[in-house]
Design a binder for these strands. Structure first.
Lengths: 197, 197, 197, 197
DNA sequence: CATGAATGAGCCTTCATTCAT
DNA sequence: CATGAATGAAGGCTCATTCAT
C-alpha cells in the first residue's frame, strides 16, 4: 500500500496511527483490516514490497558480465535510485533497527545483510582478481554502502537535490582510488601537516 | 541522566516508558518530573549530554597541529569511540531523523551537521593544500562519516566486536587512497571486466 | 435457522459473529440481513423456533388422560429430551436471563414461566386429588424442573452421557417419594445423626 | 471488588465495560488496571472472592456432627443464603458455562463441582448408613442443588421475595420424602390417573 | 523534596450493519 | 435476490502526567 509507506516514512512506525494510513489511502479504518491483520503486518509488507524491486534490480545487474568498476557503479546507482524513488521505504530502513518490534528488526537486518553480501561478493572477486588490495571485505562493503546512504540520506530527509549519476560516479571513485591527489612522481611525504582548522 | 540514555537506546523513544527511566535511575516516577518537565525534554537532554563530550573532544583534537591524515584518523577514532562508548546515544542519533518529534529532529540534524562541518573543513584544507583532489567537500565528508557509522553500526546494534584502532586506520586508508591495488607501473586498463558473481 | 442456533449455542450470544452464522448457513453475510433485521432478531427467532416444538409436545402429552406419575414422567422425558436434542437452545436458555438484552430476557422468562405453569397445574391437580400433600405448587414445580435441568446440564455442557429413560424415572421417583429408604415398620427417628464426612 | 461484581451481575461479562466497573467503583478507568491486569482477571477474582465465603461456610457446617437431615438442611440454608446475599455472584455462576472464556468456564465448573462433591458425600454417607436408598449419588446431588437453585433463581433475577428458612425446610423435605401424600395404610395404587389439565 | 496512586486521552482492533454491484 | 467490501462506533488496554501525602 503506497499510502502506508508514505505515512510510515513521514511519521515513523510508532507515531503512525492506523487511522492515518486509512485516511491517506482514502478508505475507512476498518477497511485497512480487510487487507492486513495488524499494524505490524502493514509495516512488514510495506518494507518487503518497497525493497524487493531494488533487490531484484541489483541481482539482475550484478549477474551481468561487468568490470569491477561497473559493478560498483551499478550498486551505487541502484542504491541512490532506491533511496530517491523509494525514499519512504529507505527512510524506514534507515531508522535504527533497535527501535522497533523484534520481528521487524530481524526483517530489516536481513534485508541490509542481503545487500551487504552482494557488495561483499563483488569486492571479494576484485581481490581474487588482484584488482583490489587485501581489504576486509565486510568492512569495505559497509564503508561503501554507508557512504552511499550518508550521501543520499539528506536528500531523503531534507529535500536536498543532486544529480544521481555524477554522485554515483564520485562515490565509486572515492571508494576505489580515494580522495588523495595523485602526485605525479612520488609517494613520498604524501600527507604533510596541515594547519589547524 | 545516564539511566535515561540507556533506556532510550535500548527501547527507542516511543517504546520507552517514563516509569522505566525512573526505575533505571532508582527513583520514583514522580521524581523524574522534578527534574524534567516532559518525556521529550528528557530525551533532548540525554542526546545533548551524550553528544557534547564527543563534540568537545573532536574540537580539541582538530585544533591541534596535525597532518591531514592524522586529523582524519582522529575523527575516525573519536567517531568510532563515540559509537562504542556512547552506543546508547549513537543508536538514538542513528534513528532516522524523520521518525521523531519535530523539535528533536532539528536538534539531531544540528548535531550531525556540526560534525559534518568539522570534517568538511578538514577536507577543504586538504584540497587547498593540494593534498586532495577537487572533491565536493560535503559529499566527501558524508562518505567518510557514513562509512564510519556503517562500520560501527553493527557493533552497536548486534554486539559484534572489533578492534578500534585498526578499523579507524583502514577506513581512513580507504577514504584517502581507495581499495584499488596500486599497480606499480601503469594506470592503464585498471579495471578489467570481472566474471559475474 | 438451524445454523444460527448451533453457532449461538456453541459460542454464546455475544461471542457469535453474524459472519459465523452466515458461513454456517452457507450463505453470504448480507443474505442474513435479507431474512433478519438484526442479530438480536436472529437470536430471538432461534430461541422461539427451538422451543416451540418442545412446548407443543409438552402440551400434547399433558392433554392426555394420564396418571399424575405419568404426567410428571412425560414432563421429565420431554425436558430431558429437549435438553439433549435441542442442546443448542437449552444452552441458550440456561444462560442467566440477566445476562442478555432486555427484550430477550423477557422472552426467555416467558418461556420458562410457560413450562413452569404446566408443571404447576399438574401438581395442583395432584394436590386437589389428594395424591400430593399441600406443597407450594410453584416451589415444587421449580424443584422438579430445576432438578431436571441440573441433571441434564452437564450433559449439554460437558458431553457427559447417560440413559434418558431411567434418568427420567429416577428423578420423578425422587420428586414423588424422596430419597429416604422406606423403613418397613416405623416413621420414628428417621434421620439419626451421622458422623461428619 | 464489590463494584465489579455488581456490574458483572447486572450486565453479564460481555456487556460489562471496564469503564462501567470503574465508574461504579468511583475511580478512573486506568485505576482499575492498577489492581487487575485484565477484564478477565477482574471477573475471575470477583467470582473466587464471592464464592469462597460460601464454600468455607459449607465446609465448616458439614464438618460438624449432624444428622443427615440437618446436613442437607445446612446445605439448603447456605445455598439459598448465598444466592440471596451474593446474588451478584450467584447470577454470574448461573450463566451457562459454555458462554464465556475457556479459562473462566473451567473456574466456574470447578466451583460447581466442589459444591456438588460435598453433597455427594453427604448422600453417600446416608446410603452407607442405610438411611437412604440406593440412588445415584451424583444424580441425587444434582437434583437437590438444581432444585435449590431453581427456587432461588427467580428471587435473584426478578426480585421475588420469600422466606429462607421455611423454603430450605420444604425443599429438603421434598428431596427426602417427596411430594406424595403419605397415605396411612397402603402403598397400593398410589398414583391414579388424573384428569387432563 | 520524593513518591506512586490516580487519571483519562488515545490507539489498535473487532464486528454489526449497509449498499453498490 | 445474493453478496461481501467498506465502514465507523465501541471497547480493552497503555502510559504520560498530575498531585495529595
Amino acid at each position: 500500500m503506497q499510502a502506508a509507506m508514505q505515512v510510515f516514512a513521514q511519521e515513523g512506525y510508532e507515531k503512525t496511527r492506523v487511522e492515518d494510513i486509512a485516511r491517506a489511502a482514502g478508505v475507512g479504518k476498518g477497511t485497512v483490516y480487510e487487507y492486513f491483520s495488524s499494524k505490524e503486518e502493514i509495516f512488514e509488507q510495506a518494507v518487503v514490497k518497497g525493497t524487493e524491486e531494488y533487490l531484484a534490480s541489483l541481482e539482475r545487474e550484478l549477474a551481468a558480465q561487468l568490470s569491477l568498476e561497473d559493478k560498483l557503479l551499478a550498486v551505487a546507482r541502484q542504491h541512490l535510485h532506491f533511496m530517491v524513488s523509494q525514499r519512504d521505504v529507505a527512510r524506514i530502513l534507515a531508522s535504527s533497527p533497535g527501535l522497533i518490534l523484534p520481528r521487524l528488526k530481524q526483517l530489516m537486518l536481513d534485508i541490509r545483510r542481503e545487500i551487504e553480501d552482494k557488495v561483499v561478493r563483488v569486492i571479494a572477486a576484485g581481490i581474487k582478481g588482484e584488482h583490489l588490495r587485501q581489504v576486509d571485505t565486510y568492512l569495505a562493503a559497509r564503508v561503501f554502502l554507508g557512504g552511499l546512504s550518508a550521501v543520499a540520506g539528506p536528500h531523503c530527509f531534507q529535500e536536498e537535490s543532486w544529480e544521481l549519476e555524477s554522485t554515483a560516479q564520485e562515490i565509486c571513485r572515492i571508494f576505489l582510488t580515494g580522495v588523495v591527489k595523485r602526485q605525479s612522481g612520488s609517494g613520498a611525504a604524501r600527507f604533510p601537516s596541515v594547519s589547524p582548522c
